[in-house]
Amino acid sequence: MENSTVTNLPLKSAELPILASLPVEPVSARYRALNLGLSVFFTLFVTVILAIVHFQPWFELPFEGQVAVTVAAIIIFTIGSLTFAYHFFADRLIFYTVREQDIILYKGLFFKKVICQPVLRIQHIDIQRGPFERYFGLATLKVYSAGGSDHTLAIPGLPKDIAERLRQFVLNHSDLTRD
């Protein structure tokens, strides 16, 4: 691609509110479902174990033990419901946009974050899939720049084929062969 023909179409006016009025795509709804399911599952799992310990008929727990188990159950339940609430509201707010020259990620519930990664500056790119993500056919696309591992752009909850296509888009991008 020649420099003179490089375009980056959706941006024209400097009066745009920062990168906010671009057309965006949400990540898969299954990602939210997965997170909600996982938080419910783990909370219940741990709570059930604690309940079994508390109510099992074989031996009497000392009083301190009973208190500890109850407190632990309350803490787990609180953390679990907070996680559930967070994913319930926040996962709907993850969007991304792929433009000709960059990838933009939007996320955050209370703290909104817009991360813009020019393709030119991408060092490498990979797709990560945990066991649960694999089961749901999802993938996380990770984009690394020279800015270091703290600033890896990760788009979670992409359907596998879309993640593959995005990766291919970046790999085929003419900018990646520069330098």
Binding site: P17, I18, L19, G108, F110, F111, K112, K113, V114, I115, C116, Q117, P118, R121, S145, A146, G147, G148, H151, L153
Partner: peptide, 25 residues
């Protein structure tokens, strides 16, 4: 610049303010 990050919490969002992060190598 390697990457640009724009952060806003709900309070400063209403005031049209942002926290800018420039990621350099």
């Amino acid at each position: 610049a390697q990457q640009v990050v724009i952060k806003q919490n709900l309070f400063i969002r209403r005031r049209k303010l942002v926290t800018l992060v420039f990621v350099l190598a």
